[in-house]
């Protein structure tokens, strides 16, 4: 028996909206500790990793670990039927479920929707991601980072991110010209302006902006984003989800051949 009830169902809707352009089908692994999901994009350039802790759910029960293979496209069709204020419950009684039940309830419990989504059997190609001590960590407004990526992607497809003790520089070079945006440490009490840099070792890495713009669809999940980098390592972009868990994106760098 598996049942997970999320009080703020809108969070689940936002998560699916944030990943639906990146991955087509995913395995959600349910265990006693909560839900986790890991999937690569079709080109194997990016990887998304979701972890939702059981104590972030209104009700959570998972008698034994199960894997739920979902088509993101079909999942988002069903989630379109959930109101932003609804609670969302996932449920199945079977051990090897062929479908997953969804219940959407409005606040007054006066409207209850029930859907059943057919499940897929997907080979789980999960990667072992070691807990990395990143040498450069940037915490900043997710809206601001999203804006920087959008603006720079009109000049070039790739951005070079260079960190130093007191600032991070986003540089682009394209046919029309070049540009850079430098953001300094800023302990402002305004969220949108605050920038925390923890730079143990400076890094200089290059990434495809197309992927960063896809990751930034997760801005609605958290007002802050963290960029985690080490030389010759994928960038890890993390959106923490209050009281529930985190959505992480990993992006492989581009290297000059």
């Amino acid at each position: 028996m598996f049942e997970a009830k999320l009080q703020q169902g809108v969070i689940f809707k936002k998560i699916v909206d944030a990943i639906k352009d990146l991955v087509k089908s995913v395995n959600i692994d349910a265990s006693t500790s909560g839900l986790s999901m890991q999937a690569m994009d079709s080109a194997h350039v990016a990887l998304v990793s979701l972890k939702l802790n059981e104590n972030g759910f209104k009700d959570y029960r998972c008698d034994r670990p199960i894997t739920l293979g979902l088509s993101i496209e079909n999942l988002s069709k069903i989630l379109k039927c959930a109101g932003n204020d609804d609670t969302i419950t996932l449920q199945t009684d079977e051990e090897e479920p062929s479908s997953l039940k969804f219940f959407f309830e409005n606040q007054q419990a006066s409207k209850i929707s029930e859907f059943s989504l057919n499940l897929m059997s997907l080979d789980s190609e999960s990667l072992g991601i070691p807990d990395t001590d990143y040498s450069s960590v940037i915490q900043m407004s997710s809206a601001e980072f999203s804006r920087i990526c959008k603006e720079l992607s009109s000049i070039s497809e790739t951005v070079e991110i260079e960190t130093s003790k007191e600032s991070v520089k986003f540089s682009v070079q394209g046919d029309i010209g070049a540009g850079s945006i430098t953001v300094k440490n800023n302990q402002s009490d305004k969220d949108v302006d605050r920038v925390d840099l923890q730079i143990d070792q400076p890094v200089k890495l290059t990434f495809a902006l197309r992927y960063l713009n896809m990751f930034n669809k997760a801005v609605s999940l958290s007002s802050t984003v963290s960029l985690n980098m080490s030389e010759e390592n994928p960038l890890m972009v993390e959106y923490k989800i209050d009281d529930l868990g985190s959505l992480r994106f990993y992006l492989a760098p581009k290297i000059s051949d």
Binding site: L47, L127, Y250
Partner: peptide, 14 residues
């Protein structure tokens, strides 16, 4: 120019 590396070049399949 730069060439794009793959994520599974950095993390090993479980």
């Amino acid at each position: 120019s730069q060439c794009q590396t793959c994520i599974d070049g950095y993390y090993l399949l479980n």
